[in-house]
Design a protein around this nucleic acid. Structure first.
Lengths: 338, 338
DNA sequence: CTGAAAGCGCTAACAT
DNA sequence: ATGTTAGCGCTTTCAG
């Protein structure tokens, strides 16, 4: 039933090792025998046994991907990221094992220690993530999506959220806005100390101060009702408000709707910029000027970093911050002079 | 560095096979030695090498999950399904390898033939899916989510979409509605001949006819503009319309909005029922009476079916149709008597 | 109830 | 440039 390497070797009139080397390219093979081997492989329909390979080479060619399940994370972003990881991994002849956050540290330890996977990608990293010590101790390379408080000895990658927050404000400032607000993630995200949410706040505040803008920050639950409430609160507390930065996929649309229902035109009376997936920004009734959440690129880069590490490269950067890219759309305009 | 079974055996003063059997339970072990073995395992931090295990036992304890990428599929549903598959697989001591549709038949063949996985779960099955012959020929069990034209020799599971379509109509009929319409998936879904979309149409039409209702079916693109257009078309072509069934997650909200903007109150003038994820139905401004898309249950059941097959059970049903469960919410009410 | 030992299919020294 | 062969770490007969 199953064709093995010795079958191929016999059929091609060579030794098993020659077949192995023909497949891996780890030593020179004469063009002629390589042809013969490849032909035999094709004719016999040979497929190397993954387990045997892993055992003999101590490489499974499988990466673990740990995805978050929790509230406040935008599902399409996770999915897009996962697809990008799988696609890129395949380009390097690797497969991807899917783990849920739920499995926790034990899950990571299990797949690493049983040699099921060669390396790990961990999403949704918290400032003081309990998995940090484990990842440091593990004998296998890993890449984290997001930044913990201290990334010493770890490899992290993410959008530069601080720069993204700054870019949104700078853009509004350039358009003449003097009073701005940030509508952010749900409170639990801040409580969890997810770094990226706080970074946005830092960037937002710093840029507002630097530009001499009046500013305020409002976390917001992921419900239309909450969006409405925040909109009302904003107008009450900052009557001169003309610029809003939104960092919360779930309520971007309801928030804009709420503003309009309150009699404010976007962008006529209020300019809006957001940090969100491009597809979301594009799809709204008023397309939103936004900094893209580059999930696909982060996924690709994460895999590439891992491959570099698996290749024994020592020159892998600890921190990779992807620069924000802004796309101007209809939602932000020059402030009307009263 | 790595602790192996012989280390454990030595430490516990038994043979390697005893350790193996203590772990697998495949032969009786005296309580006393089992204790000793377990203690040694714990002390040494032993983890069996996955590859070695797979090689010796010809079981990798890994399942493949193939997820779709194409247009017209609702991402959160896919994600929820995947999470449910992973969670359930873990309960059976299995892991999940993530594959994308993109990899195609070659991807399936690869992971199956290399013995990377023991079994496969395939989502988004088309009526005449090109993967069907392959899945039949594969030496490994598989479960398909969705129904092809002929499921002979394959194991399929899905919501009973025909019954779901019927249930929506029956519900509207019971509420006194006499003229109904189905707003369905984007045209490309029908062109692709995804069975579930057509089943809904069948159920919808059959139930409408059976109840003597006037009915019409309208595919609809996944954009707010398309929703608006369909709403207008509906009112033009079926002025007496009072009941609408929606089978299209993406446009449920815009469609209801469009109706209201056209002056129709939901459910005052128009009753709406939908086939969609519960979370979506709950989250709308007017919560929608709906048949749930039971992604989590489908995922769980799919894994259970595979486990049964892997266990050598021959009594695995070819077709599993999950009965629709309707939750009444605010969007459907008794027809107002003019 | 437990041990000994023969593989599982492949890779990577070590030879030539 | 190619062949020989000793493992990789575990499971599972076969023996007792």
């Amino acid at each position: 039933m199953m064709v093995k390497i010795t079958d191929v070797a016999r059929h091609a009139g060579v030794s098993p090792s020659t077949v192995s080397y023909a497949l891996s390219g780890k030593r020179p093979i004469s063009e002629e025998t390589r042809q013969r081997v490849e032909e035999s492989i094709r004719r016999l329909g040979y497929r190397p046994h993954a387990g045997a390979r892993a055992l003999a080479s101590s490489r499974s060619n499988v990466l673990a991907l740990v995805v978050p399940l929790r509230a406040g994370i935008h599902v399409p972003v996770v999915m897009q990221f996962a697809v990008s990881v799988v696609t890129t991994a395949r380009r390097y002849d690797h497969d991807v094992l899917l783990l849920t956050q739920e499995e926790g540290e034990e899950g990571l330890r299990r797949v690493a220690d049983t040699a099921l996977v060669d390396a790990l990608i961990v999403m949704d990293v918290q400032l003081h993530d309990p998995r940090l010590p484990l990842l440091r101790a593990l004998e296998r390379p890993s890449v984290m999506i997001g930044f913990p408080a201290s990334s010493d000895g770890l490899t992290c990658i993410d959008l530069d959220f601080k720069a993204a927050g700054e870019a949104c404000v700078e853009h509004l400032a350039r358009l003449g806005h003097r009073v701005v607000a940030l509508v952010g993630s749900p409170p639990e995200v801040y409580v969890r100390q997810t770094a990226f949410a706080q970074r946005v706040v830092q960037g937002f505040t710093a840029a507002a101060d630097r530009n001499g803008l009046a500013s305020a920050v409002h976390p917001c639950e992921a419900s239309p009702a909450a969006a409405r409430a925040v909109a009302e609160q904003l107008l009450r507390e900052q009557p001169a408000l003309t610029g809003v930065v939104v960092h919360n996929e779930a309520i971007l649309e309801p928030l804009v709707d709420a503003f309009e229902q309150l009699g404010l035109r976007v962008p006529g009376d209020l300019s809006v910029t957001a940090i969100c997936p491009d597809e979301l920004a594009e799809s709204l009734r008023v397309p939103v000027t936004s900094i893209a959440l580059p999930s696909a690129e982060v996924g690709t880069r994460a895999v590439e970093l891992l491959m570099k590490k698996l290749g024994g490269s020592t020159a892998v950067p600890e921190a990779t911050l992807l620069p924000p890219r802004m796309t101007e759309r209809a939602s932000a305009a020059r402030r009307a002079i009263a």
